[in-house]
Structure formats: structure tokens, C-alpha cells
Amino acid sequence: MLSRNQWLAVVLIGLLVVSQLPGPMVHSVSSRPAHLLSTLLTPLSQWMLSAGNRATRRPDLLQRREPGEDAVRQLRAAREEIRRLQRRIEEYERIRHRFGEQLEAFDYVHAAVTRWSGDPANPWLEINRGRRHGVAEGDVVVNYRDLVGRVVDVGPGTATVRLITHPQSRLEVRVQPDTADEPARHHLVMVDAVPRRGRFEAMVEVDADAPIEQGDIAFLHVGEHRAGRGWPEHAYGFDVGMVTRIEPDQERLPLLRKRIVIEPFRDLPRLSNVTVFVRREYERPDDN
């Protein structure tokens, strides 16, 4: 029979070995207890996280842009907003027309965020919906019209969502003006996500004469070129963020290239609620 010290040594060696095993192998064993722990924490952590997020969340970019007390500016902004929404409706109509059949194959599962990683270098959220609610790995997660991320791990009642702000995220976005005044300014730019200050910022390079301006909106690209990047078609068209900064590319070709920074409209790690695009049961591949 082993002594207590020997038991401890066995445990230590076992842990050392397990910690170096391939991820899929370890995850297949640890996933179940991890989700059990999440389920135990969820009811209270969800409430606490929501309260904490309300206190510390930065204002949404759209709110930040709202004018103050000046009525004329308010009116102008309201008109601008109406035009923007009209344009957005047209955009969505187009998306719906294009992908309508696919969208009808989905249900929308509303979920509350129960915790987040707290690590800007590895941002993820956990939500209180899982396999029982139809959520599956790879499902697209949004918050209203903002793209949030994708489901990367699913338990019976919880799921982990990797945010688009993750350093490994690669998004293809289309940048266009926020208003309908300049419909001609459409540009396709490739975005590489880089985590900055706890939220998503994207640095891209565009031709110096490309008329991208501060305040332009970036959408997940809807176009003919849909190859790669791993996003399903029904995710295309959701907002990625707004152009908040444009600067010359000092490192390489400052005269020929610019770098733009795209920031999500919302403080993604501090969201309280999200929506998951869940494929309807009859559309799912046979998994019984």
C-alpha cells in the first residue's frame, strides 16, 4: 500500500504528464467536469457579472456619438441615423434576399453571459445555453447586429464563445461609410485582429488614396469571395466595428499605405446577453 507521500508523488507525476498531453485528448476528459463547474457557478456568476459589467462597461460607440443639447445637431444626427438605418435595411434586405433560405434554417437562441476569461490575450465568454438548447460547436454568436464570436466548446447547459477580438481571429471585412451620402465609397480590406487594451482593434493596410474615413463601418464581408476565414455564410454582413483611427503606416510605406483601426461598437467582453444562430433540428447533420 502506498504511503501518503507516495500518493502525492504519483499525483504530481500524473499531473505533469497530463499537462503535456495533446489538447484534444485532455479536453475530452476535462470538458465534462469543466462544464459541471460552470453549471454550478452559473446562476450566481451570471447575476454578478451582469451587475459588474453594467458598472464598468465603456459606452457603446454609437452612444458616444450622440449629440448633446444642441437641438439642430440632434435633428441632423437623427436624419443621419434614419438615412443610415435605411441604408442598413437595404443592406439587410440584400443579405436576406441572398441568404434568405439559409437564415430560415436557423433558430435564434438568446443566452446570458455567465463569465468571461478576463484575459485580453485570450478573450472568451461563457453562456448559459448548451447542447440541450441546440447550441453546437462553430455556431455564430451575435449581439443585435454586432458580430461577437463563435462557439468553440459546448457542454450540456453551457458553451464557450471565442470572441472576434481573439488574437488568432482573422476577419475579412468590407468598410463603407456610415451614411447614405457617399454610396460610392465601398472598399474591401482584409483585417487582422490584434488585441489592444482589452478590446478588439484591427490594424489593416489600405492604399493611401482609398477614401476610408474615421466613422466608417466595417461589416463581415458579403461578396463573391467567401473562401477561407472559416465563417459560415449566414454570419456575413454583421457589424465588426467602426473605424476609429487612420494613420500612415510608419513602419513600412507611409506614403503609399495607411493603417486603420477598427473597434467593435460594444465592449465585447462585458456583454450581458448574446444571440446564438442555431441550426434547426431537422437541418442538423444526422448526429444520433
Binding site: Q20, G23, S30, H166
Partner: peptide, 23 residues
Amino acid sequence: DLEQRQALVVAGDEPMHAVLVGP
């Protein structure tokens, strides 16, 4: 360990999020 999710570099574009036991 169970509370953390680590993004691991696996074959393909996307990293895998796994619960590593041990560290």
C-alpha cells in the same frame, strides 16, 4: 484549471480551446 480555457495551436487556421488539467 477547470475554470480556464487555453487556446492551443492545432492544425488548421483556428486554434482549439481546451481545458488543460495540470498547470
